[in-house]
Each structure stands twice: as structure tokens, then as C-alpha cells.
């Protein structure tokens, strides 16, 4: 893994900062010099995971590139809440074009920088899961395939939250959305559907693919840093809980991300040239139920009739992830 956690020092690298660590080992987010690429005053909901993830990732990218960064942004929550006329929250050069073309816009920017001999200026493209796994998938795959020099960041909150919480191909099984309602014999999003975009990205054999969550800042920052060490197409898939769409308390955003990781629901790993090179281990394994229960989108699994069968299927999927990516610390 790019990120080697510091084992001790009270909270080690689990917290955002740690006054006991040497400066060089501290996170970007813990420093007052952090760029706040996404500034205050944005109109994201309370406890927005995407706002947090975007600032984490882009600040890290700004640090890694010494501020030589341009971002292209897909239509979606992040775009809408950050740039309603007459105000923008972005402090970096940023462009929004359309919902489905962000990867291609980024390709164009990267081409412009290359042709102008400004290869020190790096390009990120970012979008939500809808803009990435669904409508933007064609352009994304094209950008991957051409190995264009773009870091694409997907902020995955598992649905079209901006338009009122509809299903996307990143919506997890059993989750209730406005288009997969919790009604009928198989309430919520069907099992057996959806895209594993990190795996698809890896299948393009691009230099670098990684997943992260907003609950592991240091891991996320290390992955952005690592991504910036490569030229060519790179993909970072960040799980960003959405209090609105998931139906959890706004204070639980980071906790939800943590539980997604600690339950095995969301494997956090990285891959280079199509091969997995490391996985973030689960520290305190929890049953998926602990992750599902605080979320209203899964409320139908608990009442009026507990759906242990469905929870078991979700647990099985988590267990598969744990096996597949080796998420449990093995005793030597």
C-alpha cells in the first residue's frame, strides 16, 4: 500500500492530525496551509460526504502538484452545490461542462497543457457515481483506454442524490431509492446488478486504480499522492456517504464510511497496471448489520419484518470482498 500507517503515537495516523508526528508525516488536511480547494459557503447538505471527499482529494492533489492543477467536474451535487451563480467555492481553475463528458473534457485540458509545454500542470476529473458509472462511462472508458494523463476521481454515494435519490449502477443491492422503492416482494435495488467500476478500470490496464473512503483520510491522501506520481490515466473511487440519500444522521457521515470499510462492504485497495498491490485492512470487523441499521435506505430490512435473508446476502457479499482482497489482518 502507498500508505503505511504509523502504529502508535496515541492515535497514530487514524486521526486527521497528530501533534506528536513530525511535520513531514502529517496529513495535508491537518495543516493550516491546506488549500481549502473547496471553500466555505458551498451549499452541500449538512454532513455531506462528497464535499468532504472532494476537499480531501483536491487539497491532496494541490499539495502533490504544488498548486499546478486544473479540475473538470461533472454535473451533479458537487457541481451544483459548489458553483451556483454568482458564487463559486472552488479556489482552483475548474470547469464544468456536462454530466457525461467530464473525462473527455479533462483529456482536452491535458492535451492543451501538453501542447503548450506545460506538462507540470496536472488534470483531475471528478464526478459522482452517476456521472462516472452511468452517463459518463463511455468518455471515462475512452480516457482510460487512451491512457490520457488524467486522474479521474469518482465520489460514490450510490445514487443520483442531486435529482432526488434515484438509482444508479453504483446503488448497492437492497438499497431503497426513489426508483427502487422499498415495496413489493423484493424491496429496494435488485441483487445481481451494478458495476464494479474499480475492477473495470483495472481491466483497462491503466497505471493506477485505487479506492478510498472519507473515513481514512491518510490513506486517501497517500493514494492521491501516489496517483500523481504516475503519468497516464488513473482512477480513484472514493466512497462518500450521503446523509440525504442514505438516510443517516448528518453527524454519522464518517462513521458510515468507516463501517462500510470495517464490514467489508466497501473494499479499500489499490492496483497498479491492473494488479492489486495492497488493501487497507479491517481494524475492528463489524457485521454488515451495524453498517446497514443506521441507514433509512435499508430500514425495510429491519421492520416491519426483519429480513435476515437479505442481510445474509449482503453479509456474504462483504465476506467475499474480505476474501478477495484479503481485508483481515493475518496473524504471522
Amino acid at each position: 500500500m502507498s500508505f503505511q500507517p504509523v502504529k502508535f503515537y496515541q492515535t497514530g495516523t487514524f486521526t486527521v492530525g497528530n501533534r506528536l508526528l513530525p511535520d513531514a508525516e502529517r496529513s495535508v488536511q491537518s495543516t493550516v496551509r491546506r488549500h481549502n480547494s473547496l471553500n466555505s459557503g458551498h451549499r452541500a447538505c449538512q454532513g455531506c460526504g462528497e464535499a468532504l471527499g472532494a476537499r480531501y482529494a483536491i487539497d491532496a492533489a494541490m499539495e502533490a502538484t504544488s498548486g499546478q492543477l486544473i479540475a473538470a467536474n461533472a454535473t451533479g451535487c458537487l457541481e451544483v452545490f459548489s458553483t451556483p451563480y454568482p458564487e463559486t467555492s472552488w479556489q482552483i481553475p475548474w470547469v464544468h461542462s456536462l454530466f457525461g463528458n467530464t473525462a473527455a473534457v479533462a483529456t482536452g485540458i491535458a492535451a492543451a497543457m501538453r501542447v503548450k509545454g506545460r506538462s507540470e500542470v496536472r488534470v483531475v476529473a471528478q464526478g459522482g457515481d452517476g456521472g462516472t458509472t452511468d452517463i459518463g462511462f463511455g468518455c471515462l472508458s475512452g480516457m482510460f483506454e487512451r491512457n490520457d494523463d488524467v486522474l479521474y476521481i469518482c465520489y460514490d454515494n450510490g445514487g443520483y442524490m442531486n435529482t432526488g435519490v434515484q438509482r444508479s449502477s453504483a446503488t448497492p443491492p437492497a438499497a431503497r431509492t426513489a426508483t427502487t422503492m422499498a415495496v413489493g416482494p423484493t424491496p429496494g435495488n435488485p441483487f445481481g446488478q451494478g458495476k464494479d467500476l474499480p475492477a473495470i478500470a483495472m481491466a483497462h490496464n491503466i497505471p493506477y486504480v485505487a479506492t478510498a473512503t472519507v473515513s481514512e483520510l491518510r490513506d486517501l491522501e497517500a493514494k492521491v499522492r501516489r496517483a500523481m506520481e504516475f503519468r497516464g490515466a488513473r482512477y480513484l473511487h472514493i466512497l462518500v456517504p450521503c446523509p440525504l440519500g442514505w438516510g443517516h444522521d448528518s453527524a454519522l457521515t464518517i462513521r458510515m464510511a468507516r463501517l462500510a470499510h470495517e464490514s467489508g462492504i466497501f473494499p479499500v485497495f489499490e492496483a497498479e497496471s491492473g494488479e492489486v498491490t495492497g488493501a487497507s485492512k479491517i481494524r475492528r470487523q463489524v457485521p454488515v448489520e451495524e453498517y446497514l441499521r443506521p441507514q433509512k435506505r435499508y430500514a425495510h430490512l429491519f421492520s416491519p419484518k426483519p429480513r435476515e435473508d437479505v442481510i445474509r446476502r449482503i453479509q456474504e457479499a462483504a465476506d467475499r470482498n474480505i476474501r478477495k482482497y484479503g481485508l483481515l489482518e493475518t496473524t504471522p
Binding site: V105, G108, A111, G138
Partner: peptide, 18 residues
């Protein structure tokens, strides 16, 4: 990979001053 991408790449490039 498509005309949609073609115009989008042009948008990105043009926005970046090319």
C-alpha cells in the same frame, strides 16, 4: 470514442486555451 467525446475534448482543450 465518440463524437460526444470529440466535442468534449475540444471543450476542455479550448477552455484550457488551446
Amino acid at each position: 470514442e465518440s463524437e460526444f467525446a470529440a466535442m468534449s475534448v475540444a471543450i476542455g482543450a479550448s477552455a484550457a486555451g488551446a
